[in-house]
């Protein structure tokens, strides 16, 4: 599939309304050549997994700044598994204490990105995990 695009869902589960970070990441991913589906704030785990299924995404990026990640992320990971979607790459960004990072990774989260992360690091991480040689925007420019 020569024209295959990588699709990424960017969502904010839970009740905090601070979506600046999620929007910055969404825009950076767009500029890197990804198709980004942005669903906005205050999403339930069910809504996120349903959107990910309908949009057939390769990656889910969750932004959580409320401290509720240990309640929200396990639920999302369980719903993904129930639907056979545990092949989707899941990343978490936001305020995550160091001691929770291994717990999230044990649940199947592949990458955790805290404050100060460069957007390019997130892009590189996604490309590496998906086995892309270069980010989609570069590939498009070269073809």
């Amino acid at each position: 599939m020569a024209n295959r695009k990588i699709r990424v869902l960017v969502a904010k589960p839970g009740l905090d309304g601070h979506d600046r970070g999620a929007k910055v990441v969404a825009r950076a991913l767009r500029d890197a050549g990804f198709e980004v589906i942005y669903t906005g704030i205050r999403q339930t785990p069910e809504a996120i997994v349903e959107a990910a299924a309908q949009e057939d995404v390769d990656v889910i990026g969750l932004s959580i700044l409320s401290g509720a990640h240990m309640a929200l992320v396990p639920k999302i990971m369980r719903l993904l598994k129930e639907r056979g979607m545990d092949d989707v790459l899941v990343l978490v960004g936001g305020i995550i204490p160091d001691e929770d990072v291994p717990k999230l990774k044990a649940l199947g989260v592949k990458g955790v990105f805290g404050p100060g992360t460069l957007t390019q690091d997130i892009i590189d991480f996604i490309c590496r995990e998906l086995g892309l040689e270069t980010m989609p925007a570069m590939a498009a420019a070269q073809s």
Partner: peptide
């Protein structure tokens, strides 16, 4: 985007009533 080939698709933000 004609520059990167990427896209930001945000219409779902207004369609959350339909979830589930």
């Amino acid at each position: 985007s004609p520059f990167s080939g990427g896209a930001l698709l945000g219409d779902r933000v207004r369609m959350r009533d339909l979830v589930g």
